[in-house]
Nucleic acid binder design. Structure first.
Lengths: 197, 197
DNA sequence: CCTACCGATCGGTAGG
DNA sequence: CCTACCGATCGGTAGG
């Protein structure tokens, strides 16, 4: 009867926009993501694209959410069921390296790119990136703490120092892989992580 | 006689453009750097700005050169005269941390930001960023090799692994400082570096 | 170095 | 979801 799309079709279109937005934003940045380009590549009008989100900023926030979903699916979900503490840290670290190694997004780790892009700015987009980054670091920190409590790591472990060094390994993996095309970077990351844990 | 500017004045204007361009690009990215904004903040016309460079891409390349000059002045120059090998690595590492700690540019390390922005693209700008990054890493690598040769580091040292971990420390310093405002990050970087060297 | 201007694209809106 | 349109800004040029 009605030419209107069903709710399911609307959701599907929205997801198509976000899937492509994630790919484009990882390569060109969240600011370089434009409504016109999304529309052209999806065979839609600009109004059709932005209608799902209202403003470009809302679109950027939705893409960040989509990136977070991808990361959660690829890293913490793969360590689910593993005992908290050192085993969890090792499983999550392996999943994290594997996630970066498989190049799921053309621009590498979405959050590394977004963090570098927005660390000098202010506003809701920066805040969302900070929130996601902080959330995952809290998750790691809790597990480091537990590993120390259980005696899986030395009692004099500096928890924030170890967290710093784990994050450093992953940032470097993304850097060497994306900028220098270094195929040995995942092996280096694994070796560095083994030494820490 | 002539209303034309002298060559010295022209050079001075060009340098003013580059100085501001470096500040703006570190915060908003090399792509976010616009000719119109530079012109407005310098009280010039757009034609006056772009006339010094020809195209935006040439302007971006000139800003990269200016960033390289700043880095060289702040890091390798400060380690000049220090014996090559482990002493040089320690001096350069301290200067590098100090450079990031003093927040000389509002967006943190220019090359870290530029690397993340252009690692998913192609062209002369990306190539220039890769070249600068590779140059400095070669410098570090030579000194690691020498430190091993001189017995300052263990003979079984994996040179590229150590280089990877040094770069990782600096990437993390920039990340924690810029994104999370972590004032303890420089201390963490120093501690991690001491453990490596 | 300027004014004056170009076509292209930006994010976004009105109305259907 | 579309067409048609808006003002603003983009990089860049002509001519002086």
């Amino acid at each position: 009867m009605s030419p209107r799309k069903t709710a399911a079709e609307t959701r599907h279109t929205r997801q198509r926009i976000l899937d492509l937005g994630l790919v484009l934003a990882s390569a060109e940045g969240l600011e370089g993501l434009t409504i016109g380009r999304l529309a052209a590549e999806l065979g839609m009008s600009k109004a059709g694209v932005i209608g799902h989100f209202g403003t470009k900023e809302s679109l950027q926030l939705a893409v960040i959410d989509a990136a977070a979903e991808l990361f959660v699916r690829e890293v913490p979900e793969r360590a689910r069921g593993v005992p908290r503490g050192l085993p969890y840290l090792r499983a999550a670290g392996d999943a994290w390296i594997s996630y970066l190694e498989r190049d799921l997004l053309p621009g590498g780790c979405f959050f590394t790119a977004a963090a570098a892009e927005f660390d000098g700015r202010e506003g809701p987009v920066r805040d969302a990136v900070v929130r996601m980054s902080a959330f995952w670091q809290r998750e790691l920190r809790v597990n480091i703490w537990r590993a120390v409590s259980l005696g899986e790591l030395p009692p004099d472990t500096d928890i924030d120092q170890l967290l710093y060094e784990i994050v450093a390994i992953m940032l470097a993996l993304n850097h060497f892989r994306q900028l220098h095309g270094d195929v040995q970077a995942p092996a280096r990351a694994r070796r560095a992580l083994e030494r820490l844990l």
